[in-house]
Design a protein around this nucleic acid. Structure first.
Length: 819
RNA sequence: GCCGCGGUGGCGGAAUUGGCAGACGCGCUGGACUUAGAAUCCAGUCUUGAGAAAGGUGGGAGUUCGACUCUCCCCCGCGGCACCA
């Protein structure tokens, strides 16, 4: 039997005609399994580098189905957003036309790969029937005070005349044109994800089946810090200066304060300063430097003394207040206490400006010469307190608590928790997104669009090129409307929403994609979610996966759904590398899947992609290695022909126990392949074990074996292969006389009797080195095995007159003789 | 700088409650079949060595009867964050 494109087509048509993968959400007859692959941006056609994602997902979905689950495997399009828009601009067509063209093309590609989607569940975020509910979500958040507008600095690319999402700023430069990105203050919409910071952090522990590194990345991104905010009183200020620290144990070493130039107290502090003009000059210079965002590498710490002093509340010392360019405005209070002896940044600054350095922590086990008498570097570790009044001698940990207690008692400080996580900026001054459903009325101010007036349709505009203002702002018909409260003229918000808002809830929509009266049906969503297996690239570890968790928690709080984590199990696949780089169009190293499918068939490509290496690690594409998969499939298919023409030689008998050998191999293969798939989707080893089984079948038929067992072996091979090579497996399944689709058959079962071994080969080690091997009965005792081993000729020769000191026997594996 | 992941033949990669390193595949070498090629089949393929044998999982130490696997130190590569007080 020859594997041709016709087989692919035949079975793809069969699946479509028979609705093989259609799921009726209301009718769950078996345990459900929601398998979800992150939906793509349809901004270009797919290459094999993209393919890995969908092929892994498909293998999982097909396998789970054969394991008896009712599997939902949907697909849709993250169709709004900058990537699609940028491509459309580049090709000078409307983003909608470009997007729809790509959707059509990618759909055809996915179908040609034999991906088993239930296409009736298809969604696209750019259609009004979808984004109507994205707008609904915005309004739900708005009603709860979790969507709000404020002025904030955003990333701005002057060449593209647009704001950029954080993820589009790569090393301070615009992803598209490599221009340096600057910061601008604009009035923007935010979602208050910070309200959920603690829960997003705590619930990471619930996600037992997420990769550790993704959880760590989220943890670092949330960046929780526990510490104390200390009040430093200043003579000329009516309010004290608050400084947050995680190292309150070092307070006695705080020898100056440092403020960001934007700190509200700065104006007052420098008001009477002799060199006010100089300070103002310094501030404007700092501002300029900060806007460049390119300050990471050769950033030089600079600062100026304000002329004012604060009082260290513990020592009572007068300490100078500085403005410094290394203090962040957006974190803590924008002011810090500087402890140069125990913070390397403060140390560097103090050295430069000759500020006092007071050591207050002694490194516990440090040798005397290592103690920073020479003050060449800051000691940032913990230790015991010195020069710290009543707290001398305490260990850092204990001191932190005691000093915090003391400060709270004396009202000079209070315990506080800070997060690095910032609120989520969701507005974009771009065309291709869901309009933000807000209007502005002269009388009533900011007014949400009424639910009955949704969707706020994205208008057709002629010019959607970015200018810095939303293209919607040029459409008078769009802007002008009436206030639903007072019926007076009002204007619409012209910004659109970040595409990550669209994708923060799409997994809920698949359950009832056509639902017109609600975003989803609670009962159905509760039945089908959370997603059992989510599959996608690690590049979404923080953004999309954090936003989705946030939105799910919010909807759970509103009792719209009954679960508060969207994805039970997460799998992040590695990229495909070719010629030393990630496969991408811009690098010119893409491999077109269409060509491979045309030449070798979809299953060859699928098998190769799964066989390349562990799916969670990056894999290197080698054109020649593809031949191996092809060769293997042909070799396996030749068995089907051999089986058809097989004449069992009854006279030959069971040479060398082939019957038992092959039966054992069948069952051990089933067991191992199943183990590989139940584990962390080790497709590569699963496939290699099936290859071994095929090799064994060839050996066995050469030796002579019963036809029945030969047939069973062939059937097993193609059953085990079916999640990977569905077209070929369907074809063989029907050739072997089974009716209908192979995916209605169940996964082969292991006979545990076939795994047990009564005898086998073990290695004989002498002093830990393998010297010989022997076949033994596993029921033999240690003594019997020892006697047998010592009787081996080779062993005798090596041991000679020496006597064994110790013998270790590991049943079924090794015997080690120590001499 | 901090955090995380990784380092095994010519190549992709197997093997970890410590127990025969290199499964499976690619490539390569030799042979069979063939007018010839393709395809297929057989044998070989970690290194040194004719062989016996010895060495070998980034480097160095350690624990152990036994270490790719565990501990400590170091080197290299990749990814994330990057002045978060």
């Amino acid at each position: 039997m020859e594997y041709t494109k016709k087989i692919d087509q035949k079975w793809q048509e069969f699946w479509q005609a028979n609705n093989t993968f259609k799921v009726c959400v209301k009718n769950i007859k078996k345990p459900k399994y929601y398998c979800l692959v992150m939906f793509p941006y349809p901004s270009s056609e797919l290459h094999v580098g993209h393919g890995r994602n969908y092929i892994i997902g498909d293998a999982v979905a097909r396998y789970k189905r054969m394991r008896g689950y009712y599997v939902l495997n949907p697909m849709g399009w993250d169709a709004f957003g900058l990537p699609a828009e940028n491509q459309a601009i580049k090709h000078n067509i409307h983003p909608r036309a470009w997007t729809l063209k790509n959707i059509k093309r990618i759909t055809q590609q996915l179908k040609s790969w034999g991906i088993s989607y239930d296409w009736e569940k298809e969604i696209a975020t750019c259609f009004p029937q979808y984004y109507r509910w994205t707008q609904w979500l915005f309004l739900e958040l708005y009603k709860k005070g979790l969507a709000y507008k404020k002025e904030a600095p955003v990333n701005w690319c002057e060449s593209c005349k647009t704001v950029l999402a954080n993820e589009q700023v790569i090393e301070g430069k615009c992803e598209r044109c490599s221009n340096q990105v600057s910061q601008r203050n604009l009035k923007q919409w935010f979602f208050k994800i910070t309200d959920y910071a603690q829960r997003l952090l705590d619930d990471l522990d619930k996600l037992k089946e997420w990769p550790q590194r993704v959880k760590l990345m989220q943890k670092n991104w949330i960046g929780k810090s526990v510490g104390v905010t200390i009040k430093f009183s200043v003579k000329n200020l009516d309010k004290p200066l608050n400084c947050f620290t995680t190292r309150v144990d070092t307070i006695f070493g705080a020898t100056f304060l440092a403020l960001n130039y934007q700190h509200p107290a700065v104006i007052k502090l420098i008001d009477d300063s002799d060199n006010k003009q100089e300070i103002l000059k310094f501030i404007s210079q700092t501002k300029k430097e900060e806007a460049s965002l390119l300050r990471s590498q050769d950033f030089e710490k600079k600062g100026m003394f304000t002329g004012e002093f604060a009082i260290n509340p513990m020592t009572g010392a007068k300490i100078p207040i500085w403005i410094a360019n290394y203090i962040l405005s957006g974190y803590g209070t924008g002011a810090i206490m500087s402890v140069p002896a125990h913070d390397k940044r403060d140390f560097e600054f103090a050295k430069k400006y000759q500020l006092p350095i007071t050591e207050v922590i002694k490194e516990p086990k440090a040798k005397d010469q290592k103690i920073k008498a020479n003050k060449e570097e800051a000691y940032e570790g913990e230790g015991n307190l010195v020069n710290s009044g009543d707290f001398n001698g305490l260990a850092s940990n204990e001191a932190k608590e005691k000093i915090a207690d003391f400060m709270e008692q004396e009202n000079i400080g209070a315990r506080e928790t800070n997060f690095r996580l910032k609120d989520w900026l969701v507005s974009r001054q771009r065309y291709w997104g869901a309009p933000i459903p807000i209007l502005y009325c002269k009388e009533c101010g900011e007014v949400p669009v009424e639910d009955k007036d949704l969707p706020v349709l994205l208008p057709e505009v002629d010019r959607f090129l970015p200018t810095g203002k939303s293209p919607l702002a040029e459409d008078k018909d769009f802007i002008q409307t009436k206030c639903p409260r007072c019926n007076r003229p009002a204007e619409r918000e012209t910004d659109t929403m970040d595409t990550f808002v669209d994708s923060s809830w799409y997994y809920l929509r698949y359950i009832s994609p056509g639902q017109a009266s609600a975003p989803f049906v609670k009962e159905d969503v509760d039945n089908w979610l959370p997603v059992d297996q989510y599959i996608g690239g690690v590049e979404h570890a923080i953004l999309h996966l954090m936003y989705s968790r946030f939105i799910t928690k919010f909807l759970a709080d509103q009792k719209k759904i009954s679960f508060d984590e969207p994805f039970v199990k997460l799998f992040t696949q590695g990229m495909i590398i070719k010629d030393g780089a990630k496969m991408s169009k811009s690098k010119g190293n893409v491999v077109a899947p269409d060509y491979i499918i045309e030449k070798y068939g979809a299953d060859t490509m699928r098998l190769y992609i799964l066989f390349m290496g562990p799916p969670q690690k990056e894999a290197i594409w080698q054109d020649e290695a593809l031949q191996g998969s092809r060769r293997f499939l042909q070799r396996a298919l030749r068995l089907v022909d051999k089986l058809k023409n097989f004449k069992e030689d009854k006279n030959q008998g069971d040479k060398a126990g082939q019957k038992e050998l092959l039966l054992r191999k069948i069952h051990s293969t089933i067991s191992e392949v199943t183990g590989d798939l139940e584990g962390d989707f080790q497709f590569n080893t699963a496939i290699s074990r099936i290859m071994e089984l095929v090799n064994q079948i060839y050996k066995s038929i050469q030796q002579g074996v019963e036809k029945e067992i030969f047939a069973q072996a062939v059937d097993t091979v193609f059953l085990l292969l079916s999640p990977f090579t569905p077209h070929i497996s369907e074809e063989v399944n029907s050739l072997l006389g089974h009716k209908g689709t192979v995916f209605n058959r169940s996964w082969p079962k292991v006979d545990p009797k076939m795994l047990k071994k009564d005898e086998g080969e073990i290695a004989i080690l002498i002093n830990g080195k393998v010297k010989d091997k022997m076949v033994i009965d596993f029921s033999l005792s240690k003594e019997e095995v020892k006697t047998k081993a010592l009787a081996q000729i080779k062993v005798k020769k090596i041991i000679a007159d020496k006597s064994p000191k110790k013998i270790i026997y590991v049943k079924g594996k090794i015997i080690n003789i120590v001499i």
